[in-house]
C-alpha cells in the first residue's frame, strides 16, 4: 500500500521536529493512523494533564480533513463524551493547505480557549456559561483524575 508523499513528509516533520507539547506517532501497521498526545496548556484548567488522542487520515486526505478524537476523558464544552471535537477546521473550514500539525495546534489552542457558544457537550457548555469558575474546577479535577 503506497502512502502519498505529502503524508510521508508531514509524518517526518512531526517526528523529527515536533511542536511543543504535541506528539504524533504513526502506527506501524497503518501509517495513516496516529497515536497523539497533547499536554494541557499552561494557565488552562487542563495544565498538568497529558491527553491521548487518535488521528486518522482518510483516503481523501488532504481534500478531506483528518479525523481526530480524544481518548482521554475531558470536561470541555467543545468535546463530547466520546471524545469527538467540535472545531471548524475539522469540518467546513478545512482547507488542504492545513496540516496534521496545524490541526493538533488548533486542538491544543481549543483547550486554552473553550467556546461554550458553539458547544458539542451541551451540559458542559451550560455549566461553563453559568458558572465558569465552577466548571473550570471540574475540568481541573477531571484532568487530575484522568489525564495524569
Amino acid at each position: 500500500m503506497s502512502l502519498p508523499k505529502r503524508i510521508i513528509k508531514e509524518t517526518e516533520r512531526l517526528v523529527n521536529d515536533p511542536a511543543p507539547g504535541i506528539s504524533a506517532v504513526p502506527h506501524d501497521d497503518n501509517l495513516r493512523y496516529f497515536d497523539v498526545a497533547i499536554t494541557g496548556p499552561e494557565g488552562s484548567p487542563f495544565e498538568g494533564g497529558i491527553f491521548k488522542l487518535e488521528l486518522f487520515l482518510p483516503e481523501e486526505y488532504p481534500m478531506s480533513p483528518p479525523k481526530v478524537r480524544f481518548l482521554t476523558k475531558i470536561y470541555h464544552p467543545n468535546i463530547d463524551k466520546l471524545g469527538r471535537i467540535c472545531l471548524d477546521i475539522l469540518k467546513e473550514k478545512w482547507s488542504p493547505a492545513l496540516q496534521i500539525r496545524t490541526v493538533l495546534l488548533s486542538v491544543q489552542a481549543l483547550l486554552s480557549s473553550p467556546n461554550p457558544d458553539d458547544p458539542l457537550a451541551t451540559d458542559v457548555a451550560k455549566h461553563y456559561k453559568e458558572d465558569e469558575k465552577g466548571a473550570q474546577n471540574v475540568s481541573r479535577e477531571w484532568t487530575r483524575q484522568y489525564a495524569s
Partner: peptide, 15 residues
C-alpha cells in the same frame, strides 16, 4: 485504500 481503524469505523457507524 486507506484502512479505517476500528474506532473511527465505529464512530461512522454510530453517526
Amino acid at each position: 485504500m486507506a484502512r479505517v481503524p476500528r474506532n473511527f469505523r465505529l464512530l461512522e457507524e454510530l453517526e
